[in-house]
Design a protein around this nucleic acid. Structure first.
Lengths: 243, 243
DNA sequence: CGTCAGTATTGGTACGGCCATTAGAAAGCT
DNA sequence: AGCTTTCTAATGGCCGTACCAATACTGACG
């Protein structure tokens, strides 16, 4: 039973900040796989006993773990704290927050993104399956069509742009690139938006996306890189102008 | 007075999870600059009144904010929750945790790191000041000396390696690279360690570090990249062997 | 067999109290 | 006066109880 394993799993919390101690122990139990994904932790009242502490302490610990994205809490009968598979959003948010607070200049962000995109592009060319490559092209065509509408919905634009980037980065077959990319995007999607707000850049940028996809299909590495550089050059101009 | 501004700053919490509502409101107040860095939030008992809620709710909210790295809590008279400048560690930890839980293969990590290092190297060559470049060389020499000792202390090795990478990445003059780099390192410092555990690779890797520094000083971009590739080739061999 | 009320479990909230820690104020000593 | 000690008040940390709200299961009833 659950209680049987839990009894030996946790030890009473005593030192300084009890809630932290509890949080650390529970986190350790989760990360070491002693509590499997999707499984339920003992109830608050139960943990209270296991840790020989008060319910308030347990609740504070659970709050921290929830904030960390490790658990998900449901109420009602058979509710409780369930071990959750971490999501990119949870992992990326703090970093995005940090970048914001540090007021990193947009030039720095752009520089990083461009360097990432260049690497991603090379990997996409060599590893991306034909299917994905053509899917990317189709998306860029659809995107261009959307952009050429009289008054494109900016929300739809943002969504498609996200899709586009996702397909692109997935072709690397390396999840690390995907995570880092999404992290940056979570914090700075607004940057990309501005590019598509001005009619001057909008068409050019969309066209360039399609051209990028074509060069990827053609396995033209240098030309692909050229397209990417052009994209960020546009973005930089656009942002500089806005200032 | 503090209470005067706070009264108009927060509104009572009512919806579903009160502590989340409170946390969101406080975070908004912090991020919008209404509460400045280092400043103190009202006391728990005070917030309890401002939000028309119980102290437990306030404490849970503060826990979440603390976990997020936004505040720091001190006890005693004149204690309380102080707005903190975010640290890389706070921001990077969740992402590192995520990478761990996803069980990303070490090949993927290495691939990402290598691509990062290549970009960083190029930026370091073009932007790094002479002073920094020579500082890097000195560190590599010191590092090599340490490695050549009969029984190098692995903790010291890890520390110097961290220093080395820090100097390296700082030369880019772009904090984004620094953060991403540290994020990866927080989760996977053990990877680097293994390289220096085996005598076979140890000397070669240390020597290669020095060679890298020399090529950076000489502004030999291609040779620098070659060094970096060699480093990761070693690492890959080492890890494959261990398996 | 299906529907609906009842019930037990669990998280969410509130209130009140006590302790440990801390910084500053007050008192005392030299 | 100047330093040390003691006192005091503010604050976070912790505990316990009680009640509410949501929820899934149970069983009676139609």
């Amino acid at each position: 039973m659950e209680s049987t394993t839990s009894q030996s799993l946790f030890r009473p919390a005593q030192i300084g900040r009890a809630s932290e101690d509890v949080a650390v122990q529970i986190e350790a139990a989760i990360m070491s796989g002693q509590v499997r994904m999707g499984e339920r932790l003992p109830s608050e009242r139960n943990l209270q006993v296991l840790f020989s502490t008060s319910r308030g302490v347990i609740r504070e610990a659970l709050r921290a773990l929830k904030q960390k994205g490790l658990i998900e809490v449901r109420k009602g009968a058979h509710g409780g704290a369930f071990v959750k598979t971490l999501e990119v959003l949870n992992a990326s948010e703090p970093l995005a927050l940090f970048l914001k607070q540090q007021q990193v200049s947009y030039e720095n962000i752009i520089e990083f993104r461009e360097s990432m995109d260049r690497t991603i592009a090379l990997l996409a060319i060599s590893r991306g399956e034909e299917k994905d490559k053509h899917c990317l092209l189709e998306q860029t065509v659809a995107f261009e069509k959307l952009i050429n509408e009289p008054a494109p919905n900016m929300e739809t634009v943002a969504e498609m742009l996200g899709q586009l980037n996702l397909i692109f980065v997935k072709m690397t077959k390396n999840p690390v690139f995907e995570m880092i990319m999404r992290t940056i995007q979570i914090g700075f999607s607004s940057q990309d938006q501005t590019l598509y707000e001005h009619a001057v850049y909008r068409f050019e940028a969309a066209l360039n996306w399609r051209e990028t996809a074509r060069q990827i299909i053609a396995c033209e590495a240098l030309k692909t890189l050229s397209c990417i550089s052009y994209h960020y050059a546009l973005l930089q101009h656009c942002l500089a102008e806005k200032k």
